[in-house]
């Protein structure tokens, strides 16, 4: 039943949001692009968690994946290449009431935005961080990305990428004060949904690396992975991501992993023969920077004025 609020001059009915409330412009990604699935999963989480569109902000950098805010019905900030995280952190700093989602690509986050990736995770502000990792620069048409495998042919390395790729998981796990590190793939919608939901529910930065298909510039990479489920290792634990049968069926290699075990998380992340899926690390108690940066937000103008006069007193002759 619709509840009638006492102060019905403000809001007569409790609002119920449908998927339509989270829909923005029509998505313009290529057919078959993994980004579509991420958008759908995120919209479902928004709906199921009944987040107020006016209190939700989707922040992104520049890239194909960074267009995501345009396709949402919330507030959005489509920023600069590599700089989604400082913008998102700034939004959260004095407005901890806002629900912040970040969409960033592998180039955006792991190359041009590297400094912010490291430091934003250290700040551990309460937000959901989705890295769309297609191992390629999509928007600018097929340049090598930090996660392109060695030998992979791109427009900047037509004879194949010449150095080994960066491992985003081991790097992330090495950052102080991380609190939630997960990995998933775009082509298993239930697992993607559960992972984003868990990242969102977590208080702190929910880092999710989404292995994502680019059918136009890196089709062979995803095909190879999709065709060989033995490459993956599904992580199970009561504290981990709750996986349904489809995922269990799709990824037969499974292992129990306690996400509070950082050493084991490292081991799993560093083992390049098996790609871990699920929650690698979780620490619900890591401090969040907005709890510090928002100090004083509630101060009244009168208290501020008194404080300012006290500061002037110290300098008065």
């Amino acid at each position: 039943m619709f509840g009638l609020k006492a102060d019905w001059s403000l809001e007569v009915f409790e609002r119920y949001f449908t998927l339509g409330d989270y829909a923005g412009g029509e998505a313009r990604w290529c057919p078959g692009c993994g980004d579509h699935g991420v958008l759908t999963a995120a919209q479902r989480v928004l709906r199921d968690e009944q987040l107020h569109p006016e209190l939700t902000v989707a922040v992104s950098g520049i890239g194909c994946s960074s267009r995501m805010p345009h396709y949402l019905g919330t507030y959005g900030f489509h920023g600069l290449h590599g700089r989604a995280l400082p913008l998102a952190c700034g939004i959260k700093s004095r407005r901890p009431d806002l629900d912040v989602w970040v969409a960033t690509g592998d180039g955006d986050c792991f190359s041009i935005g590297t400094a912010h990736w490291i430091h934003a995770l250290r700040y551990n502000m309460d937000m959901t961080l989705m890295v769309f990792d297609n191992s390629i620069y999509g928007l600018t048409k097929a340049q090598t990305s930090p996660t392109s495998p060695i030998g992979f042919k791109t427009n900047t390395h037509p004879f194949g990428a010449i150095i080994a790729p960066l491992n985003p998981l081991t790097v992330t796990l090495g950052i102080t004060n991380i609190s939630f590190v997960a990995q998933t793939v775009d082509w298993n919608p239930p697992m993607l949904y559960e992972t984003l939901k868990a990242a969102h529910r977590h208080k702190g930065t929910g880092f999710v690396r989404i292995i994502q298909r680019c059918p136009v510039y890196a089709d062979s990479l995803a095909k190879e992975l999709q065709g060989d489920p033995s490459r993956f290792l599904l992580l199970n634990h009561e504290k981990g991501i709750q996986i349904d049968k489809s995922a269990s069926r799709q990824f037969p290699n499974q292992q129990e992993h306690d996400p509070s075990d950082l050493a084991n998380a490292f081991k799993l992340a560093a083992d390049t023969s098996r790609i871990p899926l699920g929650l690698l690390y979780w620490n619900p108690d890591a401090p969040c920077y907005e709890d510090l940066s928002s100090a004083g937000v509630e101060m009244t103008p009168h208290a501020r004025l008194a404080g300012f006069n006290a500061a002037l007193d110290r300098l008065t002759i």
Binding site: V57, L80, R83, L85, L87, A88, G90, R94, L98
Partner: peptide, 15 residues
């Protein structure tokens, strides 16, 4: 870059 980005984020959010 992060310093001004952070400030812009805050400004965008009304502060």
């Amino acid at each position: 870059i992060a310093a001004i980005g952070f400030a812009i984020g805050s400004s965008y959010a009304g502060k």
